[in-house]
Amino acid sequence: MRRTIKLSEVERHTLQQLSVNHQHRDIRTRAAGLLLLGSGLSAPKAAARLDVSAQSIYNWSRLWAELGLCGLLGGHGGGRPRSLSEAMLATAIDVARAQSMTLGEIAKHIEAEHGEPMPCVLETLSVALRREGFSFKRNRFSLKKSGIRKTLR
């Protein structure tokens, strides 16, 4: 089955930018595959160049014909599922907004409310809270320099 697509200059530019700059590798590969099809390469040859199956190229071209750019961008399901559930994250946000606490204290509140241990390390909780706009500084117990000078004299 010979599948070719006609790309306008704007579509070609958009696909070139996607193939270089998109954050997900599979979207970059899809855009590159459509560019190869638009340049006149057959689906099996484009698939061999991108190290994917020819069926994938046919699927991408069908999605492009039916839905355009939205068909190309939809369907990214890659990546590991988040270890911190949405309910636990909502609890962490509520606790962090209520008062100033350390990550360990926030984790204890989450465990107490949900009745199960934290499914992740504190660094994961920190990243999730930073994604929601919170920032943290590590508490330091340091002596003031002037206090040290007075005791040494």
Results as ranks from 00 to 15, higher is better:
residue 49 R to M: 11
residue 48 A to V: 12
residue 117 P to L: 10
residue 116 E to R: 15
residue 66 E to T: 07
residue 126 S to P: 03
residue 114 H to W: 04
residue 47 A to P: 08
residue 65 A to M: 05
residue 5 I to A: 02
residue 147 G to P: 01
residue 125 L to A: 04
residue 83 S to T: 10
residue 146 S to N: 12
residue 62 R to G: 04
residue 50 L to R: 03
residue 32 A to L: 10
residue 69 L to G: 08
residue 27 I to H: 06
residue 77 G to R: 09
residue 19 S to W: 05
residue 89 L to P: 03
residue 87 A to W: 09
residue 146 S to I: 12
residue 91 T to L: 11
residue 147 G to K: 14
residue 5 I to R: 01
residue 19 S to V: 03
residue 43 A to D: 01
residue 17 Q to Y: 13
residue 95 V to F: 13
residue 111 E to M: 07
residue 130 R to I: 07
residue 112 A to Q: 10
residue 136 F to H: 05
residue 131 R to A: 11
residue 8 S to D: 04
residue 97 R to Q: 06
residue 46 A to W: 02
residue 5 I to M: 00
residue 8 S to M: 09
residue 50 L to Y: 04
residue 30 R to A: 01
residue 51 D to Y: 11
residue 53 S to H: 07
residue 53 S to Q: 07
residue 11 E to D: 02
residue 43 A to I: 03
residue 23 Q to D: 15
residue 5 I to T: 01
residue 18 L to Y: 08
residue 97 R to G: 04
residue 43 A to V: 03
residue 82 R to W: 05
residue 143 L to Q: 10
residue 56 S to E: 00
residue 132 E to M: 10
residue 140 R to G: 06
residue 42 S to K: 03
residue 34 L to D: 01
residue 47 A to N: 08
residue 85 S to I: 11
residue 143 L to G: 13
residue 92 A to D: 02
residue 96 A to P: 00
residue 145 K to T: 05
residue 19 S to F: 07
residue 43 A to M: 05
residue 71 G to Q: 00
residue 122 L to T: 08
residue 41 L to H: 14
residue 4 T to M: 08
residue 149 R to E: 06
residue 141 F to H: 15
residue 45 K to M: 14
residue 20 V to E: 09
residue 102 T to K: 10
residue 36 L to T: 00
residue 54 A to W: 04
residue 124 T to D: 01
residue 61 S to F: 03
residue 21 N to L: 12
residue 26 D to K: 14
residue 105 E to N: 12
residue 8 S to Q: 05
residue 103 L to H: 08
residue 138 R to D: 06
residue 73 L to F: 02
residue 104 G to K: 08
residue 45 K to F: 12
residue 124 T to Q: 01
residue 151 T to Q: 12
residue 44 P to Q: 04
residue 114 H to L: 06
residue 12 R to Q: 06
residue 147 G to I: 08
residue 76 H to F: 15
residue 144 K to C: 11
residue 48 A to Q: 15
residue 151 T to N: 13
residue 131 R to P: 02
residue 17 Q to G: 14
residue 10 V to R: 14
residue 43 A to L: 07
residue 95 V to Y: 11
residue 109 H to V: 13
residue 47 A to W: 12
residue 54 A to V: 03
residue 87 A to R: 11
residue 131 R to Y: 09
residue 103 L to E: 03
residue 49 R to Q: 13
residue 79 G to N: 06
